[in-house]
Computed example of a mutant assay.
Amino acid sequence: MAEVKIQAEARTEFGKGAARRIRRDNKVPAVLYGHGSDPVHITLPGHDTMLALKTANALLLIEVAGGESHLALPKQVQRDPIKGFIEHVDLVMVRRGEKVQVDIAVHLEGEAVSDTLVVLEQPSVLVEAEATHIPDGVTVSIEGLDVGAQIHASDLPLPAGTTLAIEPDTLIVNITQAQTAEQLDAELADAEAEAGIDRDEPEAPAEAEEPVSAAAE
């Protein structure tokens, strides 16, 4: 994984008011910590940070103006729940060659046989890898798999230098029988019954009335 260089500034103001002023300048308050050192409070450029953090487990080279450079991984990213912009970032310092544990995404390729349901039980897996060689994800094929087939963590084709940090028998993908429309409707009816929801029965079509003829005098 390539390093993303970001120019940062040392931060001396703290609190909600200071954080709001930083965000108004299109910057992001952040904290660097790890390796037993004191936390380093910094300010990151908003646009560059947003682009860098689009990649999971982005490896960042933080260059603090007038200070040191730090290699870091995002630990926690706080976003505005409505607008989605980054409000704060916690970064953990790492060293070249150091092993770290991170979650990487599981990607599926291919198609299982017809009338099956592919259940991705674990969309990501915890692995251990060198901080400078974290894989973007792991891809596993489900091509031609039939009902009852399963893929466990030990079946994942991890790149060299990357090892599992979860139990090898952890279920990742499960191939089951797809439900019929009747089964789905029955499950929905049961769920509605448990919730106390009554289905409105369709009204029977009204019978056509015989035309009334005028009585002859």
Results as ranks from 00 to 15, higher is better:
1 M>T: 13
1 M>K: 15
3 E>P: 00
9 E>Q: 15
10 A>L: 09
12 T>W: 12
19 A>K: 11
27 K>V: 11
29 P>K: 13
36 G>F: 01
39 P>Q: 05
39 P>L: 05
41 H>P: 02
43 T>P: 04
51 L>I: 07
51 L>K: 10
61 L>Q: 04
63 E>R: 15
69 S>K: 11
72 A>G: 02
73 L>R: 07
74 P>M: 02
80 D>L: 10
82 I>H: 14
90 D>A: 10
91 L>D: 09
104 I>C: 01
110 G>T: 13
111 E>V: 10
115 D>H: 15
116 T>M: 05
120 L>D: 06
123 P>F: 05
123 P>K: 06
129 A>M: 08
131 A>E: 12
135 P>I: 15
138 V>I: 03
140 V>D: 02
143 E>R: 14
146 D>Y: 08
155 D>A: 10
158 L>H: 08
161 G>A: 10
164 L>K: 08
165 A>K: 01
167 E>P: 04
168 P>C: 09
169 D>I: 10
171 L>F: 01
173 V>G: 01
174 N>G: 00
178 A>D: 05
183 Q>R: 06
191 A>H: 10
195 A>L: 11
200 D>P: 05
202 P>A: 13
204 A>Y: 15
204 A>V: 15
205 P>I: 03
208 A>E: 15
209 E>A: 08
211 P>Y: 14
212 V>I: 15
217 E>K: 08
